[in-house]
């Protein structure tokens, strides 16, 4: 049986981090993954259940001249409805559009989607192509300490990240995309709502004079973690976006995607979809 000995819902970050300092707290925000995982027995509660929803400053979207910062407790609905993000990082809003269902979007947090570290986490590929970093905070030596690390290095395996048990993911930050930045997000699943991605794909790049640069391609559900598709990126970097480069990118997708068979799809279908999506997003960008 799972025994929770205390439930905490602090107002201040330092209180939360102190409670986490012994590594014996389960963090609760939206609870949309946590509730299912503890119910099924896939995860067990630690002694303390720590609700971070009320912490001042952990929620909100801040768009500065050079940088965007999204608090970890910001809900997917907040991202979906944010007009500034819709202008400067529509790929993130697009992913929020396709996220689960209205009820789940209202509860689920951005930080939770990242820390859940599912290979199918919908918000992760767009953040990877935006070059996002995550801010991790902990209580050490009597003070709040923070570190910033690239999201790309954050994931270890399904459900596992490099975050320490005493650390809390407090925010996601990324540079404000350049004016010539283009991005796309694609997600597959047999139905329009409440679907776990069979495969997801995001593309982000600068497109100037028909040429791609700073190309980032990210894939979900094709490996144990969401990943950057380095081979596809290399094929496209510095190239003109034309039929030949698109074909080369499609051909290289298999170098990056190493999917498996599972209850939702076969490896063949996932590999097939990745190729279809690479071609689709590149053609779409080319068409604009």
């Amino acid at each position: 049986m799972q025994e929770i000995s205390s439930y905490l819902a602090p107002r201040r970050l330092d209180q939360a981090l102190q409670a986490m300092a012994d590594g014996a707290a389960t963090v609760l925000c939206g609870g949309t993954d946590l509730a299912l995982q503890t119910e099924s027995g896939a995860r067990h509660y630690k002694a303390k259940l720590l609700n971070i929803r009320r912490i001042d400053g952990l929620t909100g979207i801040e768009v500065k001249a050079d940088q965007v910062r999204i608090g970890a407790a910001t809900t997917v609905s907040d991202i979906r409805g944010n007009p500034e993000l819709a202008t400067i990082a529509p790929v993130l809003v697009e992913a929020a559009e396709h996220f689960a269902s209205e009820q789940i979007r209202n509860a689920a947090s951005l930080g939770g989607n990242i820390c859940n570290a599912s290979p199918a986490g919908d918000m992760i590929p767009p953040l990877l192509v935006l070059g996002a970093s995550v801010e991790l905070a902990c209580w050490r030596d009597g003070a709040v300490q923070t570190r910033l690390m690239p999201l790309e290095g954050f994931f270890v395996s399904p459900g596992k990240t490099v975050k320490l048990a005493e650390e809390l993911l407090t925010a996601v930050v990324f540079d404000r995309p350049a004016a010539d930045f283009v991005a796309r997000f694609k997600k597959s699943g047999p139905r329009p709502a409440l679907e776990i991605s069979t495969v997801s794909l995001a593309l982000g790049a600068r497109l100037s004079n028909g040429k791609l640069s700073e190309v980032r391609v990210a894939m979900g559900s094709v490996a144990p973690t969401p990943l950057r598709a380095r081979h596809v990126e290399a094929v496209l970097e510095g190239k003109a976006l034309d039929a030949a480069s698109i074909a080369a990118a499609v051909a290289s997708a298999a170098e990056d995607a190493k999917p498996i068979d599972d209850v939702r799809a076969s490896a063949w279908y996932r590999g097939h979809l990745v190729r279809v999506f690479v071609e689709e997003v590149l053609n779409d960008v080319r068409g604009n």
């Binding site: 139905r191 776990i196 939702r264």
Partner: peptide, 28 residues
């Protein structure tokens, strides 16, 4: 016709939940 399927492997049900056993939802 389109989505529902009990995935049985050696007599064991692999998708005993609405996440993986897909009913038709309202938008469809």
């Amino acid at each position: 016709a389109l989505s529902e399927n009990m995935r049985l492997e050696q007599g064991l049900l692999k998708n005993p939940c609405f996440r993986d056993y897909k009913l038709i939802t309202a938008p469809e």
